[in-house]
């Protein structure tokens, strides 16, 4: 717990110093996306890694946040800072309502139901052309402004996004090490035992599902206001799978793991540019390899691998 906090402080300092270290504007732009994806991966990890409940529809909540912010600030000329919480409240209420029936389902059934939910939301983005602009997207979304400064450059956006991302990480670390976080992990390990000890598993799952949706919505709002243009393609089934990949690769139940997964999957396409569309082969293979050989994700797998190699060397030395 103390260790987590120290690690977090070191991490936060590094994040804040990063723009001084790499002066390149292009990398800043990619790191903005790493920040948004980190928020999303942490949100999904709270649900999947801590509570053990899968969601294949989180891109939908992300998209709802983005579209609500986008529509409220363009069509209804709301202030972006006002639109963000309004979007979050709407998405949170929706998730809370649907959470009760959907979280009654388990395992494969929950996966399919959340997937269906995500697809329905995606279809709505495409079809409600009057509101969302349909497949061609919604443009002219205003940037966020603070004390007269508009967040319209990569470096400014970097600080904006990472302030939020770090806050989400810190909250999640606090949550994980608290009464509620323990109850979540308890439900994950043995739901019946948790209930016998007085944990209202059903309510708790809905709460965490709602929180996870709210964080995703916030990430969506931030995405809309930094990009100023959004289209349904960013919020489809494939992106839900990408989020899942981030969480699994980083490590279920590890907040820093989610950052690692988000960073890896956001940077990977930059390196895979040569193979362009074929990056999905790499995602597929990564998912399979991770589940088979490193089910704990990178945060646990790498140290274990290191110990194994070091151990073998030690044995060789002794022999």
């Amino acid at each position: 717990m103390k260790k987590d906090l120290l690690l977090f402080i070191a991490f936060a300092l590094l994040v804040m110093a990063a723009p001084q270290l790499f002066k390149g504007g292009y990398l800043m732009n990619v790191l903005v996306f790493v920040g948004i994806n980190t928020m999303l991966a942490v949100a999904l990890n709270l649900l999947l890694g801590y509570a053990g409940q899968i969601s294949l529809g989180h891109a939908g909540f992300f998209g709802l946040g983005a579209y609500l912010s986008g529509i409220l600030t363009t069509t209804y000329s709301m202030d972006p800072w006002g639109a963000m919480p309004v979007a979050a409240i709407i998405v949170g209420s929706l998730a809370g309502l649907i959470g009760f029936p959907i979280l009654k389902l388990k395992g494969h059934y929950l996966a399919m139901a959340t997937l269906g939910l995500g697809i329905i939301i995606f279809i709505v983005f495409n079809e409600t052309v009057d509101l969302t602009g349909g497949p061609s997207g919604l443009s002219g979304i205003p940037n966020l402004k603070l004390a007269g400064v508009s967040f319209d450059s990569d470096v400014k956006n970097y600080y904006l996004i990472w302030t939020f991302a770090l806050a989400v990480m810190l909250f999640s670390i606090n949550l994980a090490n608290s009464r509620v976080g323990r109850a979540l992990r308890a439900v994950h390990d043995s739901e019946v035992a948790a209930q016998v000890l007085g944990v209202n598993a059903r309510l708790l799952k809905v709460q965490i599902f709602t929180l996870s949706a709210v964080i995703s919505s916030l990430a969506g709002s931030l995405y809309a206001h930094t990009m100023t243009f959004i289209s349904p393609a960013s919020f489809g089934f494939n992106f839900s799978i990408e989020l899942l990949t981030m969480v699994v690769i980083g490590g279920l139940g590890s907040i820093f793991g989610s950052f690692l997964g988000a960073a890896l999957l956001t940077l990977l396409p930059e390196f895979l540019r040569a193979v362009n569309d074929y990056d999905i082969i790499v995602y597929g293979a990564l998912l399979m390899v991770m589940v088979m050989f490193m089910p704990g994700g990178l945060v646990r797998g790498i140290p274990a691998l290191y110990r194994k190699i070091a151990g073998q060397k030690g044995e060789a030395g002794n022999a």
Partner: peptide, 22 residues
């Protein structure tokens, strides 16, 4: 576990789809 099976079959599906695209 169910979650691992969901993830691995999704991984397999993406992989097969990617190879088909190739």
């Amino acid at each position: 576990t169910p979650i691992n099976l969901v993830i691995i079959t999704i991984g397999g599906s993406i992989l097969i789809r990617g190879l088909a695209m190739l």
